[in-house]
Write a protein that binds this DNA or RNA. Structure first.
Lengths: 146, 146
DNA sequence: CAAATATAATTGATATATCATATAAATAAA
DNA sequence: TTTATTTATATGATATATCAATTATATTTG
C-alpha cells in the first residue's frame, strides 16, 4: 500500500502554494486585471535594479529562462516594461519599467505586502525560520541525490 | 522597499516543490519514459479504488477538474487507464488501470516511495508535523481572508 | 585572426494550472 | 411531466513549467 499523496508533506506544500497564489492573484486582479502574480514579481525585480538582464531575473525568481522570456514578452506587449538591446553586449536586453509599469507597481506593492502578511498571520518568525530550514533540507536532499 | 521574493517563505515553498518534482520526475523517467509524476499519482488513485470518478480524483489530489480530465485523457491514450461510462449515472466514468497501468505501477510505486523517503532524509516526523501545521495555517489564512 | 566554445535569449513541443463556458445527464421543483 | 437546477465531464483560452534545440553574439584558444 502506497501512502495517498493526501497525507504526505508534498501534498501540503503544493496545496499551500496553490492557495497562496490564488489568494494573491485575486487581490492583484482587484486592482489591475491584466497582470499575473508572476508578472508582478518580474516587474518588481526589473524596477528594483535596472542592471538585471533576463537571465538574472530568472535566477533570482527561480524560474526557467524560457518562462521569463515569455513573461517579459507579455509585460512588453502590455506596455509595463521597455526593452532595449544592451550596447556592450548585444545578446542582452536592458529592461526598464515603463510609466505604466511604475504606476502599476505603486498600486501593487502594498497589495503584495498585504497578501504576504495576511497569509502569515498568527505565524511567528521563529516558526517561519523552522519551516525554511526544513524546506531547505528537502531541497538539498533532492538536488544532492540526483 | 519590497522584500525580494527570494527572502520570503513563499519562495522557499516554491523552490522546494520544484526541486522535489524535478527529482521525482527524473527517477520516474528512468523506469518509464512516457509518464509524468502527476499522471502516476492519478494512476495510483484510480488503481487503489475502482469506485472513484474523475471529480473525486480531482478532489483527492487537489487538482482542477479540467486538469484531471486532460491527465486521464492522456493516460487513456497511452493505454494506462480504461474508461467506461458508468451504468447508473451516464455522466460519470468508471476508471480502471489497464494491464499496462498495473505493470507500470508495480515498477513505479517503489520509486515514488523511495523518492519521498530520500527527499525527507534526516528530517524527523516531529519536524514534518511542525511544517504541516504551519503550512496549514497559511492555507487557512489564504482561504479565510478571501 | 579563424575556429571552437560559451553565453543570452528565443522557439517549439508538451503538460499542467486556472478560469470561464458548454454539454449532457440526473435530480428537484412547479 | 415539463421545467428548472444541479452535477460530472469536456472544451477553450491563456499563462506557466520543463526540456530540447536554435540563433546570435561574445569570448577563448590555437
Amino acid at each position: 500500500m502506497i501512502t495517498p499523496p493526501l497525507k504526505t508533506i508534498f501534498y501540503s506544500i503544493e496545496k499551500t502554494i496553490k492557495e497562496y497564489r490564488r489568494y494573491s492573484q485575486d487581490n492583484i486582479s482587484k486592482h489591475i486585471s491584466d497582470i499575473t502574480l508572476d508578472q508582478v514579481l518580474v516587474l518588481i525585480m526589473i524596477d528594483s535594479n535596472s542592471k538585471l538582464n533576463q537571465k538574472e531575473v530568472a535566477n533570482i525568481l527561480y524560474k526557467d529562462h524560457a518562462s521569463i522570456t515569455r513573461m517579459i514578452e507579455l509585460l512588453v506587449k502590455k506596455g509595463y516594461v521597455k526593452r532595449k538591446i544592451n550596447r556592450e553586449d548585444r545578446r542582452r536586453f536592458d529592461l526598464q519599467a515603463s510609466e505604466k509599469g511604475i504606476t502599476a507597481l505603486k498600486k501593487l506593492k502594498p497589495v503584495i505586502l498585504n497578501n504576504r502578511s495576511n497569509a502569515l498571520k498568527n505565524i511567528t518568525q521563529e516558526e517561519i525560520d523552522i519551516v525554511n530550514k526544513i524546506l531547505l533540507k528537502i531541497t538539498n536532499n533532492c538536488s544532492k541525490n540526483n
